[in-house]
Design a protein around this nucleic acid. Structure first.
Lengths: 130, 130
DNA sequence: TCCGTACTATTACATTCGTAACATTACTAA
DNA sequence: TTAGTAATGTTACGAATGTAATAGTACGGA
């Protein structure tokens, strides 16, 4: 897997928009993000440009507009970030994190059920391999 | 709970050393980190100083040396980081992260069992409150 | 008592990030 | 065709970060 470029906190917001809908024009991104943040048009445009430089986002010129789209998948980025995060904060182990998360945010029962199902499947997968 | 100062990636390494053993002199920290990283003495000292400025680390003058110790607990910082991480990467939801983690790293059965136990307890806690 | 050495303190500097202003180009409507 | 507007491009600038060099200071040994 190619390594994903390092995406900063603010840039993630832009990526999230593009992952949820792409291609999108700069304006569309601006519109979405203006709802969540107080960033100026220009700020958002800067972020988009940086992502283009980093090759995290590609574009296509459509007439005079640019249509942007992600060049890296969300899954890739999540994976990379998760890994680096866990390494940094927990020495690579997921348990303390789950613990701390569980402690902090009260999880609803359904959520817990879903998490368990995820784990069940992982277990099943292991069985398979064995 | 007081909010923890923002600790950068490199600074985390220093904090981890202090969490595992404190108080410690600058030199002790340097010694430990020299094994893991290729940072120069001075670099590490800079990091320590920044942590002191940020009030993440305190110190006590012991004669000629300074003895440093954490002013924030590991748990606090982990919590804060986990929160900001999840917000950033997953829009605040833990599920995709757990999924991606489970997919990437093959978890051992015991690990899965332990994670499930964590979830069971969370559930029990909820029951309590209800 | 004076020097070297070990510490501590001050300063540096290129990048990245967050945040944006200003400039320019090209379409649209009058 | 011309001016206004919308879109893109260029430049800015301070704070934080990673990475360190250099300068100052005090202690312990000659």
């Amino acid at each position: 897997m190619k390594k994903t470029p390092k995406i900063s906190e603010a840039e993630w917001e832009v990526m999230k928009v593009l992952w949820s809908k792409s291609p999108a024009t700069a304006n569309e991104v601006v519109k979405v993000l203006s709802k969540k943040t107080s960033w100026k048009r220009e700020t958002i445009r800067t972020l988009i440009n940086r992502l283009v430089q980093k090759k995290a986002v590609g574009f296509e010129k459509k007439g005079r507009r640019y249509h942007y789209f992600p060049l890296v998948t969300e899954a890739e980025c999540v994976k990379a970030e998760t890994k680096s995060f866990l390494k940094r904060v927990h020495g690579g182990s997921i348990e303390p994190m789950l613990t701390s998360f569980v402690e902090e945010e009260k999880l609803s029962d359904e959520k817990i059920a879903r998490l368990k199902r995820i784990l069940d499947e992982a277990e099943a997968g292991d069985e398979d391999k064995k």
